[in-house]
């Protein structure tokens, strides 16, 4: 088939429509996971392109929005198009690294469609590298370390440790129950701020506000904001705007949770 192509551009060996279908569904699956787990737009587009061309397509045209990907795989005169939704799920660097690895293996011809399907299924099913209690301790220590960097004393450190640890536990439990992400941020900010305020005063801290400020840092939308800036710089202004607004709304949700606590406890942080 396709023997009568008359343009003088170089083409790869012709592919059946069934093969094109498999290529588009696999490359979109990889792109979907990247987008859901915290990759920026340029990485999603480049990786989908690398996988598609590595599996035999001449070219791919890819549109990446913040929660969906549209792609067309092209080989000689044949093409197929597909849309894949990818609502945001969180941040998972291990998955991004794994998909990055497999995309380069495909580019070098070290991985075919069947192997890619197996690899993607394994990536999709891989659990968190660190169990929830390890993450809880790590995040609590990180926030406590922040309280030290902000100039807090030992009582502030302990208060932050307890508040951030409890808040992480609440966040894990609420996330497991599929509550609305913004509602989770508000509730977790209130728990972290409220507990930090009470604990810091009980322990006799001289810097109660520092304990509150450090305890809510576990909610800071660092990845959406950095991705927003990267998208702007790489020329994806629409995605950059959406991500920046999302980061801003999360920050407002943190403030709302804190405001609730301040009204209840009467500590003015400033």
């Amino acid at each position: 088939m396709n023997a009568n192509i008359t343009d003088d551009r170089p083409h790869k060996p012709p592919m059946e429509r069934e093969e094109l279908r498999e290529v588009i569904s696999l490359s979109l699956w990889a792109g979907q996971m990247l987008l859901q787990w915290g990759a920026d737009t340029a990485r999603v587009e480049e990786t989908v392109h690398r996988i598609g061309t590595g599996l035999g397509c001449d070219w791919l045209d890819i549109v990446v929005t913040v929660d969906a990907i549209i792609a067309t795989t092209i080989n000689n005169h044949e093409f197929r198009t597909k849309v894949r939704r990818a609502p945001l799920r969180g941040v998972n660097m291990a998955r991004i690294v794994a998909i990055n690895d497999v995309s380069y293996q495909i580019q070098q011809g070290a991985c075919d469609r069947a192997q890619l399907r197996r690899a993607l299924r394994a990536i999709d099913q891989q659990g968190h590298l660190y169990n929830r209690w390890l993450v809880l301790v790590g995040v609590a220590l990180a926030c406590a370390a922040f309280s030290d960097l902000f100039g807090g004393d030992a009582a502030t450190f302990l208060a932050t440790l307890g508040a951030a640890g409890t808040a992480t536990f609440v966040r894990q439990e609420l996330t497991k129950r599929y509550y609305n992400p913004l509602l989770i941020v508000i509730v977790v900010a209130a728990v972290a701020g409220g507990l930090a305020s009470v604990l810091a005063r009980l322990l006799g801290s001289a810097t109660v506000a520092t304990a509150i400020a450090a305890s809510v840092l576990l909610l800071v939308p660092g990845v959406p904001l950095i991705n927003a800036a990267e998208d702007f710089i790489n020329g994806y202004a629409q995605n950059g705007m959406v991500r920046a607004i999302y980061g801003g709304i999360i920050s407002l949700a943190i403030a709302l949770g804190l405001a609730l606590v301040i009204w209840l406890t009467g500590v003015n942080g400033i």
């Binding site: 915290g38 690294v97 990055n100 902000f150 660092g222």
Partner: peptide
């Protein structure tokens, strides 16, 4: 052979202006 973002995001976390953002938000309220 990893995306640079792995290191960029985590290493810049301690520099995040959490205290300034906190004071701005509370002041606003």
């Amino acid at each position: 052979k990893m995306p640079a973002k792995v290191f960029q995001v985590t290493a810049s976390i301690p520099l995040i202006p959490g205290a300034f953002a906190f004071r701005a938000m509370l002041g606003l309220f």
